[in-house]
Amino acid sequence: MNFKGKDIISIKDFSKPEINYILDYSKKMVDFAKGEKYIDILKGKVMSSLFFEPSTRTMLSFGCAMNRLGGRVIGFSDPGKTSQKKGESLADTIRMADSYSDLIVIRHPQEGAARLATEFAEVPVINAGDGAGQHPTQCLLDLFTILTEKKKIEGNKVILLGDLKYGRTVHSLAYALSLYGAELTFVSPKSLEMPREVVDECKDLGVKPVSTSNLEKSIRDTDVLYVTRIQKERFPDAEEYNKVVGTYTIDNKLLQNAKKDLIIMHPLPRLAEINPEVDTTPHALYFKEAFNGVPLRMALLSLTIGGEL
């Protein structure tokens, strides 16, 4: 399978065999990601890291992945210190990064920004999150986490919880999990339900997702609980946000009713939706999930700009 030069914009651009290939390849990267083995297959390569929106895990893990492969990173995490502040278009910024590097990683507040970037770049573009749109590498690392913990993706009962309306990770993940035939339950406040087109896509793939606002009842026979933050920055007004924030909290009392091998995932950052007391339980997978971003992104960098293992 050849990924060289391929843009990574949306999980929907990938077939199931392609996703399987990436996940298998990511497994080979784990020891290198931990620093237990050394590799420099991207020596001499440069990655542009263009973060127009705040990020901790995605930006650091992309940077870590490139460094672990022997490559170098240029870029910014504060667009206020770039020519965007002077009114430069995204298209022109992309043209510059294209001429300075072998690959562009972009996070941007506007949906479709990464897709637009592909029109102005010769080098591959990886979408690191475009507004409330797509976040394919998060989706892939989530699949990688489920696969490594549960040994398979298909057949798992998965709850997607929280902000299903604005949350980009849950949109991509609902689609990807449907590709694998996972059983999906969407739990959210009424005003933050999964958008119709996402539900329709799941149905088109043969999955019949259940939508509910009752978490306690749904959690009992669940294998994977995927929690998301209610994202204040995506709400059009503060009043709507205040109505729903704090609707769900995962704590040890709630987990008394859960299966012993339930895993809890979260794209992070978390606020009050997971009580810190859960962190020390065997259910808490979110920090390992965040680490998994490194081998997964190492795999993608290696596959797209060459230097395969």
Partner: peptide, 13 residues
């Protein structure tokens, strides 16, 4: 219809 779609900004597309 999405006000925050990049195609609704001043980009040359």
């Amino acid at each position: 219809s999405n006000p925050t779609c990049v195609s609704n900004s001043n980009e040359p597309v």
